[in-house]
Write a protein that binds this DNA or RNA. Structure first.
Lengths: 248, 248
DNA sequence: ACCTGAACACCGTTCAAGT
DNA sequence: ACCTGAACACCGTTCAAGT
């Protein structure tokens, strides 16, 4: 009579988002979401195949909050700067959910849109397709980690413990042996709190854009004079051949 | 008689690491670790206060695998390149554990060592203390996310579903409406698999280093002509004042 | 000092029903 | 089509003992 369909994907995503913002990512639980809507946990399975789909939906939600700027006549790097700034703004609105985006940019239309604009600008800048793809992904996911690791943030923490945690962290760094880690001790303050958050993000974005411009200058396949081989083989996965299609 | 102290922090960390490499991060469980050593779950609490400490120890272990190059007479950016390469190498050896490092670089001596060397090189390059701190953190955590999101990797997946997942992902991108996401469709292949993994990491590192060099060129406080304000306020946390010291 | 036993509160998820 | 009920297999963690 009052409301015929209270439940929907969107309603649950909205609740989940409020929950992350309030109590952190691990508070997002099928049972809590159900309880919140006065419903059985099983009711959620009408809308999400499993818990991962709820996380997928959350990431999509964050990405849909990115207000992609319209293309204009300015130089490509200025437009990239604005696009990345919009991306960061969307993530910063829900810092504890930001980590969900890290591996999910290419899993929803909003993510495709951001990536496509990024690729478009890089292509216009002269990047080859492959280089543009790698570079775009790297720029975006770097910014996700910049948001996640913003100095002075402690993930999943409540307001009470927050300040205390920061102070403790700074005290720990300051108390280190200066003969072993002189620069860490000297930078203890800057490493544990952000004096100017806006500048922090401005610096991050402009460092990334500067990297893009420098990469663009180099035509292709930069033969670095690094003597060392980069990286090692990943530890081999020795899992029995179970039934396939575990991930759809 | 045979072995008096089979159990130790190190033994559990070793097992946990094997477990992550084999079956992904969520397979690391107090109960499974205990079972593996023929012991009660409670036995682990002698060595770790809680599960998070196990993750902390895993992150520390990865960071201790970074073979920090000795300082030499070469230009700072070349030395930074090698340091970052060593950092990436350590992460790539245990890709599913890499995400643990993201928020734990400043939580153990091995992490202090990497950070200190990074700060040392940036200071030598002329960075102010604060700029060096932010820049060093950003460079390191960006590389963590670069490893995590390496194209052609699917976290926590077994070998069987792996190839199928990649193919599906590429097919999905290729099947997108080219009028909506033309560049994504065109770059579907490059976005889903790494043709040359070494080049991928070489590019990532040199993009970061290029960003550092460009930032170094700019003296301080870069007044960008970005019209938009970057970022928004984070959603306020409205948690009741519960007992403090939840995080020690 | 080091490990056990039993229990608690909480998960995600299955299967079979209800209406 | 949409939700429920009961159950299962698995968590992390507490408290109180054992030796």
């Amino acid at each position: 009579l009052e409301l015929q369909t209270r439940l929907s994907r969107d309603v649950f995503v909205q609740t989940a988002l409020a929950l992350v913002d309030d109590e952190g990512l691990k508070s997002v639980t099928i049972r809590r979401l159900a309880e919140f809507h006065g419903v059985t946990p099983m009711a959620l399975y009408r809308y999400f195949d499993d818990k991962i789909r709820i996380f997928d939906a959350l990431a999509e939600r964050l990405l849909s909050d990115v207000s992609i700027p319209e293309p204009d006549g300015r130089p490509w790097h200025d437009q990239v700067t604005d696009l990345l700034a919009a991306f960061v703004a969307a993530l910063r609105a829900h810092p504890d959910a930001a980590i969900l985006v890290l591996t999910r940019i290419l899993q929803s239309n909003p993510g495709f849109a951001v990536t496509d604009r990024m690729l478009s600008l890089l292509t216009a800048a002269g990047f080859a397709v492959e280089a543009a793809a790698e570079t775009a992904s790297q720029a975006l996911c770097s910014l996700v980690s910049v948001v996640i690791t913003e100095p002075g943030r402690v993930a999943g923490n409540d307001v009470d413990g927050h300040d205390a945690a920061i102070r403790l962290q700074k005290a720990t760094l300051s108390a280190l042996d200066p003969r072993s880690y002189p620069h860490v001790v000297a930078a203890a303050d800057a490493l544990t709190r952000c004096v100017d958050t806006e500048r922090y993000y401005r610096r991050s974005i402009s460092a990334i854009v500067a990297g893009l411009r420098a990469s663009q200058a180099i035509p292709e396949d930069t033969a670095r004079r690094t003597s060392k081989s980069i990286g090692t083989k990943a530890a081999p996965r020795t899992r029995r051949p179970t039934t396939t299609t575990r991930c759809r």
